[in-house]
Simulated assay, not measured.
Amino acid sequence: MRILIVGAGATGGAFGTLLQEAGRDVTYLVRRPRAEALRRDGLRFISPSGDRTHSVQVRTADEPADAYDLILVTVKASALPSAIEDMRPAIGSSSTIVPVLNGMAHIDRLQEAFPGRVAGGMAKIVATLDAGAVRQLTQMSTITIGGLGERELSPAVAEALRVQGIDLSVSADVEGALWEKWMFIAAGAVATCLFRSPIGATIEAGGLPQILGAISELEAVAAAAGHPVSAAGHEQSIGLLTEPGSAFTTSLYRDLLAGLPTEAEHILGDLARRARELEIPTPLLDLTLIQVRADAIQRGHTAD
Rank of each mutant, 00 (worst) to 15 (best):
V75C: 03
G120L: 13
D51W: 01
S78N: 13
E85C: 02
S93W: 01
G116Q: 07
G116V: 03
S55T: 14
S95A: 15
L110D: 09
Y68F: 15
A67C: 15
V73C: 01
D86P: 00
Y68I: 06
A119T: 07
T53S: 01
A61V: 08
G103R: 02
G132I: 05
S141A: 15
A131I: 00
M104Y: 03
A119I: 09
I143S: 04
Q111F: 01
Q139W: 13
A65D: 08
V126P: 01
M104N: 01
I46Y: 00
R117M: 08
K124E: 09
A123S: 14
I46R: 08
T128Y: 02
L72G: 07
V56K: 07
I84D: 02
I84G: 06
S141N: 13
P89T: 07
T142G: 05
A113G: 04
T96H: 14
I71D: 02
P89H: 13
P115Y: 09
R44Y: 00
Q136S: 08
A127L: 03
V75T: 14
V100Q: 07
S94F: 09
G92F: 10
V73R: 13
D41P: 01
V118R: 03
K124L: 13
P99T: 11
T142P: 03
S95M: 14
K124N: 10
A119E: 12
A90M: 11
A131L: 03
V98N: 09
H106R: 05
I143A: 11
Q139N: 12
S93C: 02
T53Q: 05
N102W: 03
D41R: 02
T96D: 06
A133E: 00
T128S: 13
D41N: 11
G42F: 00
R88Q: 10
G92P: 14
E112F: 00
P89E: 12
M140G: 10
P81A: 04
A77N: 14
S55M: 07
T96W: 14
T142R: 15
A61I: 08
F114R: 07
G121V: 12
I84R: 01
D62R: 01
Q139C: 01
M122D: 10
I125G: 08
I91W: 05
D86Y: 01
P115I: 06
D130W: 10
R135C: 04
T74Q: 11
D130N: 10
Y68Q: 11
S94C: 04
S49G: 07
E85Y: 02
H54K: 15
T74V: 07
L129G: 02
T138F: 04
F45I: 00
M87D: 10
I91T: 14
R88A: 15
I125A: 06
M104I: 15
A105N: 08
G116C: 04
V100G: 11
A113I: 07
M87I: 14
V75F: 10
I107M: 15
R135E: 05
P81S: 08
L80C: 09
A77V: 06
A67H: 13
F45K: 00
M104T: 14
A77E: 10
Y68D: 12
A77M: 05
S82K: 11
P48S: 08
I84Y: 00
I46T: 07
A105P: 13
F114N: 10
R52E: 01
L72A: 03
F45N: 00
I91M: 12
Q111D: 07
